[in-house]
Design a protein around this nucleic acid. Structure first.
Lengths: 345, 345
DNA sequence: GGCGGCAGTGCAAGCGCTTACAGTGGGTGC
DNA sequence: GCACCCACTGTAAGCGCTTGCACTGCCGCC
């Protein structure tokens, strides 16, 4: 539908509150906007004299470049999205911290997408994240719904799945096999001959994968199926305590308690001590995560160490390579894990 | 400098990889871009028929609106910045989580600015955050350098200082008085008559404020000055253990150990038990933060409860009010705290 | 039958940057 | 002395949205 329209040149609209823009600075410095832009993005291209003039104008005006405009124009947002279930007690925080630390000086920021303890908000969060056109997306512990997965792929945003080794990766992967962790713990358990096991586990897919790997080894070695107490979200100190208490009260007499987090293991340890049960003589305890306190407990806690910081470093390196337009041949990195055997068993 | 330039109409530039834009959708749906925009931002303004056509086009094309462009155009980014020292073991995570949770369904995302355990990166991070033009900035535990403070004010971005009650606020405040917390703990200590105190404390300004409030009350009541063991960053389980161990080994015989975190208190508790010292009979222990495990320890831990979630809720409410253009009269909210006295003293 | 009102939609001017290309001027080689 | 280069700097066309106004057509009312 065509219609004749008056010229807009002379139409007054309510203007939005003026902002100090690159034009303001350019005028003040007596240069073009391109030069001001270069001052921030390619300073080595300017003469010292020009640099000084722009610097002065920037300081005088207190100019802070609008990264939205810059990002829109350059198609580089300097934004990395971190997709995790929750930020509270997150085992992934070391990874995020490392990514932020190693990329901050290049001007990157991390934007969070919290998908909820059970991925309730995964789809909504991912859509909104894709809308922000980050230069990279780090997925940790969140399950990506199919619809979002398709959009993620279509978006062509570099994506890294971490803390796992998915069988059908979206793009890049930096992680380890939870199944293998479970098997390693299982091997250790069978080696020490502890037949009756209580597993205190979260219900998430990774915790379940570890549990399966663990149980598999036990069964293969002719050990009985372990008892399982499962919790909806990630396991806490309180979960560990109450799970052990309930199990014992119900007449369970385990020789080993395997927990899906060090917190839970810590709670288990305290509950056992509280009941006068010796660790590891009567019952051994194994955690997961090798938290900072694991080595300081009494007895010190046997646990599985994951190098979350290394995952962050590798992920950051991947993203920087992509940012420089390099192709990455080996897109899957297994950072492995380490079973650290300490006093608790 | 004017110069004659050829018309650019016919100049070919290397085009950037095409993106599905609002124009693509508009064409596919047979409507204008304005209508597509309204489909996302004011759906109630469209007829059902139009809505359907746009919806179909959006689905077919897998269109995800570019929020950078939208933000630039509307001057609303739907981005909230959270400025905190570190994401690992952060006491502020409950606040951030709550802000994200309560604002996510309105399309907001949280972008992080990690200033470092001792605010090393505060200035750089704040500048980059201001550049992203968030709709709000939540400051928690970070000390804002003067230069950044000036730019923050000039930016006119709604800013909320949390977890403290600054004497000269930047804008809005949702917090409590650390000095008052210290005094409350001090009152409790003097009431129980424990004269010799060891304080295990972080070196940050808020922990120091609590320590001062605490010491002040002790001195006022004629108690001796407490001993202090100080740690650079936030205090850990290991810090608590080693501080207590070192103090006792050096011949200290405190009647009360006050820690600047529940982690440290937990470590202190374990160290005392390890040495066969009874809590609270011989030595009492007090923490800070009322972590989830505080009530589950043996003995349960006396601690100071801060409602971090409430801080998040109030902050989110403030931001939404501002977003709707409302003026806020009472810009300072004291959420208070609660000394929870449990078994440890 | 004419008219005002109104709901729905379109037009097109920005939002504040980046960057491909185009000038400009001084230095260099012959 | 002149042609070339090269290092800097400027010009201006977008980047993909939002939104103030304008326009259209339909309804209800007198």
């Amino acid at each position: 539908m065509k219609k004749k329209t008056a010229s807009r040149k002379d139409i007054k609209r309510t203007p939005r509150p003026a902002e100090v823009t690159i034009d303001t600075v350019a005028e003040a410095a007596g240069v073009s906007t391109a030069t001001v832009s270069r001052f921030f993005n390619a300073p080595q291209r300017l003469t010292q004299r020009t640099t000084l003039r722009v610097q002065t104008a920037v300081n005088d005006l207190g100019y802070v470049p609008n990264l939205l405009a810059g990002g829109l124009s350059s198609a580089r947002t300097q934004l990395i999205a971190a997709v995790i279930p929750t930020i509270t007690n997150s085992i992934f925080s070391s990874t995020i911290q490392e990514i932020s630390d190693s990329l901050a000086e290049r001007g990157y920021n991390v934007v969070l997408a919290l998908t909820g303890p059970n991925d309730e908000h995964a789809e909504r969060q991912l859509l909104s994240i894709i809308g922000r056109r980050p230069d990279g997306i780090i997925l940790s512990g969140a399950v990506v719904p199919n619809n979002a997965r398709a959009k993620l792929i279509a978006s062509a945003i570099p994506t890294i799945e971490t803390w796992d080794l998915p069988s059908d990766p979206i793009d890049m992967v930096v992680g380890f096999s939870h199944e293998a962790v479970g098997r390693a713990v299982g091997m250790h358990a069978t080696k020490t001959g502890r037949r009756k096991v209580l597993v205190v586990s979260a219900a998430g897919v990774r915790a379940v994968a570890r549990r399966h790997g663990f149980a598999k080894v036990l069964l293969e070695q002719g050990f009985p199926e372990p008892s399982v107490t499962s919790f909806a979200a990630s396991t806490t100190y309180g979960n560990g305590r109450s799970a052990v208490a309930a199990h014992l009260d119900a007449g369970g007499r385990p020789e080993l308690v395997v927990c899906s987090s060090d917190w839970a293991a810590h709670g288990a340890l305290d509950e056992l001590r509280h009941r006068g049960i010796r660790v590891p003589r009567d019952i051994a305890v194994i955690g997961f995560g090798d938290s900072d306190f694991a080595s300081e407990l009494n007895p010190s806690l046997t646990s599985v160490k994951i190098d979350g910081k290394a995952i962050g470093q590798q992920s950051a390196a991947f993203l920087m390579k992509r940012a420089q337009g390099q192709k990455i041949k080996e897109r899957i990195v297994d950072v492995g894990f380490e079973l650290i055997i300490r006093g608790s068993g």
